[in-house]
Design a binder for these strands. Sequence first.
DNA 1: AACGAAACCTGCGCGC
DNA 2: TGCGCGCAGGTTTCGT
Length: 269
Amino acid sequence: MPELPEVETVRRTLLNVIKDQQIMDIDVLYPNIIQTDRATFKKTIQYQTIHDIKRKGKFLLFILDTHVMVIHLRMEGKFYIKKHEPILKHEHIIFKLTDDMELRYHDVRKFGTIHLLPKNSYDNMEPLKRVALEPKDMDPLTFYQTIKHRRTTIKQALLNQEIIAGLGNIYVDETLFLSHIHPLRKTHDIHEVEAKKILDAATNVLDKAVKLGGTTIRSYTSSLGIHGRFQNELNVHMRKGEPCPICGELIIKMKVGGRGTYVCPRCQT
DNA sequence: AACGAAACCTGCGCGC
DNA sequence: TGCGCGCAGGTTTCGT
């Protein structure tokens, strides 16, 4: 469920519930999620306190006593808070907190990852060190100069977290629609003015989506059963065959870089 | 360097 | 009802 607005929504919601809670025990039911062995994982974080939850791009960062737990939800990772309930099929990691409260990591496709990094140097380590700035923090000239030297499509560049962080398939489609730029345009053909327009659009889209609690589509609910409301604001994504809100031309669906991509063929050039 | 395909997994909707 | 296929908000790896 994971682009920047959804991850940020998870961060805020979770922080309210588990800030300053202690991790009393951990059950790892499916070990491929954690990037170490069970024993090391448990030994490292047991009895530590969750002081804060931060975010870098699409990564959640649980700040503990000595380590940072770095979580990527990939396609369908979610967290639930439960107490005295049977374990569901797709709940893979159970963090037992104080007062029998449990934080459960749920992931149907098992793509998510959890890394443990030392607190003093985590930002310069994999998997965080190559994550770029978010659109709101990116200098337009730097962004322009970065993509000018690439030989790829603008859509693929915007999906690349080393170029710009936080966007995924939905918000790239929306950003390019608002910028009036076709997803197949080559990055080296994007002018400086257009690069700035893209950054502005991305910033606005992400900001608005965060305010609405993210996007909930295909009946996926986010962590803790939260439903976002940004799906009502989508201009093109998942709207194949519907009229463009600007010009009325029908939205088409195509493949770009292997990803389903929605475009207004008249507005986006 | 850069592209697409395949891989990691599971479930859902569709056409036959 | 069952089966096969394509698809899914992500990223890495492998082959051309």
